[in-house]
Design a protein around this nucleic acid. Sequence first.
DNA 1: CTGTTAGCGCATTCAT
DNA 2: ATGAATGCGCTAACAG
Lengths: 342, 342
Amino acid sequence: MRNPVTIRDVARLAEVHPGTVSRALNEQTRGLVNADTAARVLRAADELGYRPNPIARGLKTNRSFTVGVLIPDLTNPLFPPIVRGIEDRLAQDGYTPLIVNTDNDPDRERSHVEAMLTRQVDGLIAATARLDGELLAEAAAGGTPLVLVNRSFEDSSAPAVTVDDRRGIALAVEHVTGLGHRRIAHVAGPQTVSTGHQRYEGFLAAMAAAGLEVAPEHVGFSASFTESEGARAGTEILAGPLRPTAIVAANDRLAIGCYDALARAGLTCPADVSVVGFNDMPFIERLTPPLTSIRVPQRQLGTTAAEMLLAQLTDGAPRTPGEVLLEPALVVRGSTAPPPPG
Amino acid sequence: MRNPVTIRDVARLAEVHPGTVSRALNEQTRGLVNADTAARVLRAADELGYRPNPIARGLKTNRSFTVGVLIPDLTNPLFPPIVRGIEDRLAQDGYTPLIVNTDNDPDRERSHVEAMLTRQVDGLIAATARLDGELLAEAAAGGTPLVLVNRSFEDSSAPAVTVDDRRGIALAVEHVTGLGHRRIAHVAGPQTVSTGHQRYEGFLAAMAAAGLEVAPEHVGFSASFTESEGARAGTEILAGPLRPTAIVAANDRLAIGCYDALARAGLTCPADVSVVGFNDMPFIERLTPPLTSIRVPQRQLGTTAAEMLLAQLTDGAPRTPGEVLLEPALVVRGSTAPPPPG
DNA sequence: CTGTTAGCGCATTCAT
DNA sequence: ATGAATGCGCTAACAG
């Protein structure tokens, strides 16, 4: 069968009591046992190929060494690196992630959280966009630690690790102002999700810092982070009387939509209008023109989130309701250039 | 605490014995209990918010309702859709996947398999490229069902679900021959992995079927499925005396490398040379020119694999060592055109 | 049809 | 320092 060798088999071979084997095999309690005996037990365990059964252990200790990971959609290229970061960090401490896709559907989200809690996950990491407070309440009530990644609660009632969106947008704005642009537009993301909102506010702040006006018609709000919404918002922005010379998009997919809008308007990038994206997705350096974007340390986002959760799990430290901001970086490519002379 | 309400609490409220509660709550054994009693138990369970503890159940039944999923790297855009397919299908039957990345490192692979077996996974789904027979042996010895996805063993000793690579390449070859091409080259993938090998053989077969010769210098072998290797192999192919008018690449990333090779050689696609990729990765329709490619039903690959595994898990059916081939589809875009007149 | 009993594999308390 | 005993929550075999 699977793993026929139990702690009793080891005990028999080592000629000690099962309880002693348990103590010897557990790092924590190793000290309680004679060094010689411990060595003998370890040798026996090794010889038999003994592997502790986490199920049984979990039943006793009420811990599963699993962590629930909630993401909207693994298929969105933003998430795989984050998930890998989480996974790799958790693995170091013997934890295994249970990954679920919520599709940002509140019902799916709820049922998945329920399922994970019944599976006795020791903690939760959530990257979902719209996470109603109930979920948090439920987890907190159950005493299950929760860490947010790539999003945060406004009241910062849960620890979160996010990229500094405002800083990222500032980098983008500073880049194009540095190139000489003055009329700069923003294709904003959905304002219901924290990244969309933060980046919008960051845009306003950065423009103010640069001493530039933001014409209302130079801000287009998208309903979702998709190419088609980017194209729609971009088209509206370009249709105005005083055309912007640069567009800072809240995300790469919106920026790609802007490419479409420009093409439809008979304009070229970057000769007529510069475009900056956000996230630095795979393969955007292969677009025509290669997209200038803001790189976010996605993998580090994951490792840091895992780290914060592990801190709570091992130290039993109470919630550290702080938010960790990771630094984004500007990646200059071919989609940005000085504004046209006119 | 987490889930303070146990089967005993329900029993007390419903005024029956815990054993009866267990039977009433379990679909399988529901029939063994009086309908009225069952209803009462269900009501009590609902009222108390009872959720069965899978850990305890697993300890008794020796099943964890988890499935180990081995993939090389979640960051490779090929895998997220497959994983989602697996996940969604498994979820329907109450199974949860444990996903690990092996990076095609045999050591990592081994240790991960060990860890999953220790965690009492009920089955394994492996999408890893080089999976030594030992792994299979180990799993089989432990009686753990295994299904391969996107790769297969040559001796087909394990059930596998793959895309029909030969058929896919045939579609590509037929497409370019239909456009009038005669001198067709192949940038092959690593011959050590099944997809690389199958597609190479498929190319030879399709060319033979079309009555065309394959010049040896028109086949370039890459050492890995990467852009740089594609560029290297592509450059070699283009350097020959009799330049091909079309290149069928074993994968999209190799095809992108061919774009680079063409650019370096001062040639344009598709005017001078047509290029066909394989996999239809996200965003390749945004390249210049948009890449003609072979679409593989990635998600279905995942759902089918999960289905095959579930069949073994539930029916207890012995290994069905069959291999399921899924149909690929040609997606024509701008990278293919009739050959130049010369 | 339902109550009783036992035990999955392990950690932990209490003795010794 | 180690043996003995108990129980985590649940299912399954056996009684009744």
